[in-house]
Amino acid sequence: MTTTERGPSRYVHDLILHSSPEELAAGAVPFLRAGLDAGEVAVIATDEPTAALLQDALGPHDRLQVLSQADVHPGRTPAAITALRRLADRWGGDEPQHVRIVGQTDFGATPRDWLEWQRYEAAVNEVLRPCGIWGLCTYDTGVLPDEVVATGLRTHPHLVTGAGRLANPDFVDPAGFLRGLPTPEEPLERTEPLLDVVDVRDYIGLRHAVGERLAALGGDRDRLEDLHLAIDEMSSNAVRHGGPPVQLRLWASADRVVCTISDGGTGMDDPFAGYGPAHGEDLSRGGMGLWLARQLCDHVDVVDDGAGLTVRLTTALH
Rank of each mutant, 00 (worst) to 15 (best):
R201E: 11
H158M: 15
L17G: 00
T46N: 11
E116Q: 13
V160Q: 12
L166V: 15
S262A: 14
H299Y: 05
D56M: 13
N237H: 10
Q65F: 11
D226T: 06
G287L: 04
P157Q: 02
A123L: 02
L24P: 03
L290Y: 01
I261Q: 07
R10T: 12
A216G: 12
G93I: 08
R249Y: 00
G108S: 01
E233T: 05
S20M: 03
E281P: 08
C297R: 01
A52L: 14
V302K: 05
A28V: 06
A88Y: 01
G306K: 06
A209M: 07
V148C: 00
A278G: 04
L54N: 00
H156M: 08
V160T: 11
R285E: 06
I204Q: 10
T183W: 06
L144M: 03
L153S: 04
W114P: 00
Q118V: 11
A57D: 12
L229R: 12
N237W: 06
Y120L: 10
V127P: 00
G135Y: 11
Q55V: 10
D269T: 10
D47F: 11
L53A: 13
Q295K: 14
P30A: 15
S284P: 02
S68M: 11
R100E: 04
L54H: 01
L227Y: 07
D37C: 13
P30N: 13
V258Y: 04
A70C: 09
H299N: 02
Q104T: 12
T161W: 03
A316W: 08
A238G: 03
G39L: 10
H318R: 14
G306I: 00
V311S: 03
L206E: 05
G306T: 01
A167T: 15
G142C: 07
V257A: 11
D255A: 14
G152Y: 02
P78Q: 08
A79C: 03
L53Q: 04
V149I: 11
H61F: 11
V12R: 15
H73V: 13
L195W: 00
S19T: 14
E186G: 07
A42I: 13
A167W: 07
P184G: 03
A278Q: 14
L290H: 01
I44Q: 10
R10V: 11
E192A: 15
R63N: 14
R312W: 01
R294I: 00
L84S: 07
P74T: 03
Q97G: 10
R294C: 00
A34Y: 05
D56R: 15
R129L: 09
D199E: 08
L32A: 07
T110A: 06
G92N: 05
G286T: 06
D196R: 09
A83R: 01
I261D: 01
A25V: 05
H158Q: 14
L64H: 03
D89W: 10
R165N: 09
L17F: 07
S235K: 07
A34R: 15
D196T: 04
D305F: 05
L115G: 00
E212N: 10
L87F: 04
N125Y: 06
E23K: 13
F177S: 02
D106A: 09
A52S: 14
G92T: 04
G306F: 02
W117I: 00
R312L: 03
E185D: 15
H61T: 05
R207G: 07
F31S: 12
R207N: 09
E186C: 14
P78S: 05
